[in-house]
C-alpha cells in the first residue's frame, strides 16, 4: 500500500532522514518507535508532502506522491493526526470535524461518518458546540483522530497520540485505534515513544535512530529483542 524507498529529507543543510525505507501493507497496524529527535515526525511529514524528501521515492497505491501538494495527498486517502493534536482552537468541535471532511463532496457519507465518530467518542457529541481550544488533552486527541477519520482515510498516520495523556486515556485511545483498524479497515501507521504499548498494538514495527531505520521486525519479536528491550522498553 505504502512503499517508502530510501528517502532522505533535509532541513536546510541538515540531513534529518538518511535513506529511510518502509513498507506498509493494507490492513496492517505498523508502528515506528524511537527516541526524541530520531526522525519519526520528519518521516510522517515527508510522506504527507509537508517536507518533501530530497531523494528517494514514496509510493502510495503504486503512485509516487513525492512533489505532490499536501491537499492532493490527503485526497488520495493518506491522512495524518499530527503531534500535539493541533485542534483549531477557535472553532467548535463540529467545525473541526467538518474541516476534516473538507475535500469530500458526498454529503450523505459525511453525515454518516459524523454519526460514526460521535458514536466512537460520545464526549464529542456532548461538546459539539464547544470551542476546540477548551477541550482537555484527551478530548482533543479524540477530536484529532475523529477529524482525520472524517477525511475517510485509507492509511491513517498517527504521530504520538499518547503524548501527555493519562494512562487510562491512553488505553482508551489505543483500543479505539484497534477498533478503527478492524471495523473501518483503515491501515494504521503509528509513531510512538511509548514503545511498549505501541508494539503490543501493532503487527510489525520499525525502530528508528538518528534518522535511520535500525530494526524492522514483527512486533512480538521486537518486544523480545534484547537491544530494543534495553533501549526503548527500559527492561
Amino acid at each position: 500500500m505504502l512503499k517508502v524507498r530510501g528517502i532522505s529529507t533535509y532541513y536546510g543543510n541538515i540531513e534529518a532522514l538518511h535513506a529511510v525505507s518502509l513498507d506498509i501493507a493494507e490492513g496492517e497496524i505498523i508502528t515506528l518507535i524511537g527516541a526524541n529527535g530520531a526522525g519519526k515526525t520528519t518521516t510522517l511529514m515527508s510522506i504527507c508532502g509537508l517536507t518533501p524528501p530530497r531523494s528517494g521515492d514514496i509510493e502510495f497505491h503504486g503512485q509516487s506522491v513525492v512533489g505532490m501538494k499536501p491537499d492532493r495527498i490527503v485526497q488520495m486517502g493518506l491522512v495524518q493526526v499530527p503531534e500535539g493534536r493541533r485542534i483549531f482552537p477557535n472553532m467548535t468541535v463540529l467545525e473541526n470535524l467538518e474541516l476534516g471532511a473538507y475535500l469530500r463532496r458526498d454529503r450523505q457519507g459525511v453525515r454518516q461518518d459524523l454519526d460514526y465518530v460521535m458514536d466512537l467518542f460520545p464526549i464529542l457529541a456532548e461538546r459539539r458546540t464547544q470551542m476546540g481550544g477548551t477541550l482537555s488533552g484527551g478530548e482533543q486527541q479524540m477530536l484529532a483522530i475523529s477529524r482525520a477519520l472524517m477525511a475517510k482515510p485509507k492509511l491513517l498516520l498517527l504521530d504520538e497520540p499518547s503524548l501527555g495523556l493519562a494512562p487510562l486515556v491512553i488505553k482508551q485511545i489505543f483500543e479505539i485505534i484497534r477498533k478503527i483498524n478492524q471495523e473501518q479497515e483503515v491501515t494504521v501507521f503509528l509513531v510512538e515513544q511509548n514503545a511498549n504499548q505501541a508494539l503490543k498494538l501493532a503487527h510489525r514495527g520499525y525502530v528508528m535512530e538518528n534518522g535511520r531505520i535500525r530494526f524492522n521486525d514483527t512486533a512480538d519479536r521486537l518486544l523480545n529483542n534484547d537491544l530494543v528491550r534495553e533501549a526503548y522498553l527500559g527492561l
Partner: peptide, 11 residues
C-alpha cells in the same frame, strides 16, 4: 488558526 494543520486536512 493553524496553517500547518490546514494543509493536513487538505486545504
Amino acid at each position: 488558526q493553524d496553517m500547518h494543520m490546514a494543509r493536513l486536512v487538505g486545504i
